[in-house]
């Protein structure tokens, strides 16, 4: 039986957090099943800057091809399929991200291997690997048994804890795909996000300001928290009506319907017109001074408290050490 292979999400010179989460999980499964852990990077040159930072794998591979320099999803999937097809690992671990979505199902399709996407948990029971996938907008969990053949897992980012202090594998081995089809895809350029075009319907984390924020002067505080969490500020209607935020930040019946991974409501009462636009959010957390506020009927977690105490304390804790 083959090994556990983690596909590194290596983009623009950086390895994504999710790669380390996958490596941590692979390590844990590897120990349970007695399998070694390998990590694979695809690039067109020796990326010296990452080879030392690939985390706790037993072996590290670099798939090297002049066509695979910039982001090249289909070509990457084909090169990886060639590499993996020879090795038949037990599991191929990648993520349900913009990077992984091209590659995971692509490899599965090219090699005829099963795929489990949106995976939020991986366990071993009686030497059988069981993956849990979140489907139907997170309303149903599917538990699947990984068959006795190589299987591609695409995990939801944040499902596994990243190991502390990634250690580096001894050396990076190089593998060059032969006879790779000429590229049918080419990266023209990267387009950096503009601050102006915030789309709250696509943000994964929304920090939502309600009338409880009291005045526009307090908006910077809310924005700081959003930044610290890697999220975006949205609002209830009164905040938009007051002109503190533009209309395209309004959540609700007469605003936008959102379904972020985290909805954090700050001083939002939870009127039905507001709930209509956010009740299907995956995780709803609300901070409100009023324990009876209807937002707590839909929230998963609540804090009965003053946002002007909780928010600064939260920001303080989220700040990197030494500010």
């Amino acid at each position: 039986m083959g090994n556990l292979v983690v596909l590194a999400e290596y983009l623009r010179g950086a390895v994504a957090d999710v790669t380390f989460e996958l490596l941590g999980k692979a390590r844990e499964l590897g120990n349970l099943l007695g399998l070694s852990v390998e990590v694979v990077v695809v690039s067109d040159r020796q990326p010296d800057d990452v080879t030392g930072r690939l985390g706790p794998a037993d072996r590290a591979w670099l798939i090297l091809h002049p066509d695979l320099g910039e982001f090249q999803p289909e070509g990457m999937a084909r090169a990886l399929a060639a590499f993996l097809g020879e090795r038949r690992p037990r599991l191929v671990l990648t993520s349900t991200t913009a990077f992984g979505m091209d590659v995971a199902a692509g490899i599965g399709g090219l090699l005829g291997w099963p795929v489990v996407a949106y995976c939020s948990a991986l366990q071993v029971a009686d030497r059988t690997i069981i993956a849990t996938s979140q489907v139907y907008g997170g309303k149903v969990l599917v538990e699947v048994e990984i068959p006795d053949e190589p299987t591609v897992i695409a995990a939801l980012p944040g499902s596994f804890p990243a190991p502390v202090g990634p250690s580096a594998p001894a050396a990076v081995e190089i593998w060059e795909p032969a006879g790779l089809q000429p590229a049918r895809l080419r990266l023209r350029r990267w387009v950096e996000p503009e601050a102006a075009d915030v789309d709250i319907t696509r943000a994964e984390i929304l920090v939502v300001a309600g009338r409880g924020i009291k005045s526009a002067d307090n908006l910077p505080l809310i924005e700081e928290l959003a930044r610290a969490l890697g999220g975006v500020v949205a609002a209830s209607r009164p905040v938009v009506d007051a002109g503190w935020l533009p209309r395209n930040r309004q959540v609700g019946k007469s605003g936008l319907t959102v379904r972020p991974r985290l909805y954090l409501g700050l001083g939002v009462s939870g009127a039905p017109e507001h709930l209509e636009g956010m009740k299907d959010s995956q995780l709803i957390v609300a901070i409100n001074t009023d324990r009876k506020a209807p937002i707590f009927d839909v929230a998963h977690y609540g804090v009965v408290g003053d946002i002007f105490e909780v928010v600064p304390a939260l920001i303080e804790r989220l700040r990197p050490e030494g500010h």
Binding site: R237, R247, Q250, K253, S254, G255
Partner: peptide, 9 residues
């Protein structure tokens, strides 16, 4: 009833 934000503009 279903044009609240629109009309308020």
């Amino acid at each position: 009833m279903w044009l609240d934000s629109f009309t308020s503009g």
